[in-house]
């Protein structure tokens, strides 16, 4: 469960203070399917980064599964991230020199899981996203849709409770975009909390709950 209480995030740009997030209070239950929408510069990426523990709020409290994560240091945050949160990015962020299977394996390497278990889990994950025959290909040999499926397999390999997707279809044609969304929704039906950031109204409407952000505030 994600609980944000009075979260503020200010940036100092020159001598001006920009309020990227202004007093956000938000609770997201386990297993929810939420879309976050808003014009660019509205603060939705900042919100995602805060939820993802990549960015520290200027003030306010963030409880993740009832643990106050605003007090943790960077390395502890990295561990929490590794075990609880999966990322899907607009530009995939695959490591170009590694094969699809090796990209999927990376979070388990960082977690220190042994080689044998890694291989089994990668095999299953690759099959789950329908890429068994392309596991040894490098990202530049895969299509955009395939790359995003690798990224999803990587995001779920540590079995996190939360999946954060930042414009997951923004770089794909509409056909593979739908495929990716359906894949994410299937994971949500399996019990994973799914938070999608998008520009696309029709995509946003598919979620059970829509959040609009304008000028750093939640507009309901």
């Amino acid at each position: 469960m994600i609980q944000l209480k009075n979260i503020q995030r200010y940036f100092q740009v020159g001598d001006q203070t920009v309020r990227a997030l202004d007093n956000i209070t938000l609770t997201i239950e386990n297993g929810e399917y939420i879309s976050v929408m808003g014009p660019s510069g509205s603060g939705k990426s900042t919100l995602l980064n805060i939820i993802a523990l990549l960015d520290h709020p200027t003030s306010g409290q963030y409880l993740l599964n009832n643990q106050d994560v605003t007090q943790l240091d960077d390395d502890a945050l990295a561990r929490v991230r590794r075990d609880n949160i999966g990322f899907v990015f607009q530009f995939f962020h695959l490591i170009p020199r590694l094969s699809a299977a090796e990209n999927i394996e990376m979070p388990m390497i960082l977690a220190g899981i042994n080689r044998q278990e890694r291989r089994q889990r990668v095999k299953k994950a690759v099959a789950a996203v329908g890429l068994s025959d392309r596991a040894d290909h490098r990202p530049d040999q895969l299509s955009g849709g395939e790359c995003q499926r690798v990224a999803i397999a990587r995001a779920t390999i540590m079995r996190p409770g939360i999946l954060l997707a930042d414009e997951p279809t923004g770089n794909l044609d509409s056909h593979s975009g739908i495929e990716i969304i359906e894949l994410l929704e299937r994971l949500n039906q399996g019990g994973v909390t799914l938070i999608i950031i998008t520009h696309d109204q029709s995509l946003g409407d598919r979620a059970n709950r829509q959040i609009r952000i304008i000028d750093g505030k939640i507009a309901t």
């Binding site: 990549l54 390395d75 561990r79 990322f87 979070p107």
Partner: peptide, 15 residues
């Protein structure tokens, strides 16, 4: 960007 990614995937500073 790779370093940022590793960080997001849970790599500690020491790693």
């Amino acid at each position: 960007s790779e370093i940022g990614l590793l960080n997001a995937l849970g790599a500690s500073k020491a790693q």
